[in-house]
Nucleic acid binder design. Sequence first.
DNA 1: TTGTATGCGTTATCAT
DNA 2: ATGATAACGCATACAA
Lengths: 340, 340
Amino acid sequence: MDVNIKDIARISGVGISTVSRVINNKGLVSKATRDKVLRVVKEYNYIPNSNARNLKTTQSKNIALMVKGITNPFFSNMIKEIERQVNLRGYPFLIQQVEDGTDEINAAIQLVKEKNLCGIIFMGGTYNHSEEKFKQLTVPFVLTTITSTQEVDPAIFSSVIINELKEAYKATNYLISLGHTNIGFLAKSPLLDETTGNRRFLGYKKALEEQGLPYDAGLVEDCEYSPSSGFNAARRLLNKNKGLTAIFAASDTIAIGAAKAVLTAGLSIPDDISILGFDGIEMAEYYHPSLDTISQPGTEMALSSVGVLFDLISERSGNQHLVYDAVLLKRGSCKMIKAR
Amino acid sequence: MDVNIKDIARISGVGISTVSRVINNKGLVSKATRDKVLRVVKEYNYIPNSNARNLKTTQSKNIALMVKGITNPFFSNMIKEIERQVNLRGYPFLIQQVEDGTDEINAAIQLVKEKNLCGIIFMGGTYNHSEEKFKQLTVPFVLTTITSTQEVDPAIFSSVIINELKEAYKATNYLISLGHTNIGFLAKSPLLDETTGNRRFLGYKKALEEQGLPYDAGLVEDCEYSPSSGFNAARRLLNKNKGLTAIFAASDTIAIGAAKAVLTAGLSIPDDISILGFDGIEMAEYYHPSLDTISQPGTEMALSSVGVLFDLISERSGNQHLVYDAVLLKRGSCKMIKAR
DNA sequence: TTGTATGCGTTATCAT
DNA sequence: ATGATAACGCATACAA
């Protein structure tokens, strides 16, 4: 605690800068002195004060991850992977959970100044950030899982995403191809512009329209990304008696809740109702029946998010935009509709 | 970003220390000057450099959470709650994910020096930390979800826990009371001393012994706290053909995997096999059938962890040890055994 | 190869 | 009520 670089220098019988050179592996130091200093460092359990270090160098090595919705199991694995990757590169890593109502960019701007970060990864959250906001961010950053609006110049940010609309479109088309015409849709804020739920909703709607199926607003329910919320939303849907034969949930957590509602109602999956989720979390596979889902390549996306960020930091490349393909996993929770 | 306290002072036409007083609400400042400074601060978007601040004050307000197993959904909610509580008190909060193999106390010792923390909460992980290690921690800390061994003086640390052994004992007794005699047990490292899995295993074993049932090592399987691992472990158990009628899983995630194995094998829950989980995560309720579980009061534990920590920090009280009761939730995945 | 001196942005002590 | 200045622990330019 109380031992600082000056103490180490004094005890080792060398100058301060020599100690500094040793612990930073910078500049020339004779092997003898180096060993001597290192021994003292070890003995006194000396750890450099990072505040002083950051204050001096102005350019820290801190990487921050701003997550909105840390309880989302799909994010959990990505977080783990991102942390692993950052640590692998020897950079300190800090996770910042962003409260659901707050603006993550504002929080980040603050954090950059406070901890002077050298890079940020954003995960989860909304899409409607203005270009001016982004420009206030003076360090490289990557939006993972967050598409931005068209108004923002792609040259000023990086992203690692899936095409939400396309994948939801794919999902809905799959259900339609199985003969379903009354397909329920469950997502968070499906009608609120620039949210993930909205993007997926637009994909859902586009598929319906292209296939000549009527869009019925009564088949769309707003819910949180959780089983309990999905359960309630699905129940509302079922109670409407709209001849529902399939439910497309914008997340696996919702899908699980919806499945429970269907099963609790005494209906069968997939004989009575088909269920299709989104994300590809482990739980969906171990649900019974296993749930079909649009599986995002989370680990790969985490990996390349860090990759893109470090490319940016080392100025090895400019801003990139990686779009991954999600995969439709068929496990049996969706079935060709029986004739009525 | 480049604007610092000196700039603000210059622009406001006051001295540096006046600015300092204003932004810290410390000392006397006339309302006129205060307003003037505040206006400039706002206009130039000035944010104090926390490195310099921490360097000077020596006593930062940083609170850290060290989590082992951030993907554990039981922890997810607790993390969210802890962060909320810490932020509510106006303290900066940082989450540190601890890799599975590494020593969380060592990591914390490092972090205390680096970020000079004023408090730590540990969540998850093992129990075998020496008293000397703990003593190297120079700031208040709370072990949440982590019981320590008897060798450590309770006066030097705080904890918020459940009685693992007792709750597992309760769980096993419940199954025994339903007539089960061949009860499988699934946990991580059940035979490795000072782990959570071991504590729960000991409770399982104690119940068996007290009820005069033979303990069969073949009914115990080692697995990770995940559905996939639980699935495999349960399958191994089923393949042994030991007349298994119930499975007690040391976590709900394991229980879900085990349930899937049972259902996949064409068996019924609870008619053929009863399943009992541990933790009380949301998913267990929405599984089909809903899984019985030993539910820990996670939110309350999170709440009081923060409470205890701040009591410690403000020296309002000494080290405390809170032991919560878990609740057995009966949802229908356990059933009285049928006569054979 | 090594040591000395300066400054990073802030807080706190002490004058004024 | 306010301003000058030392000190926090470290990195680095520069001197030796």
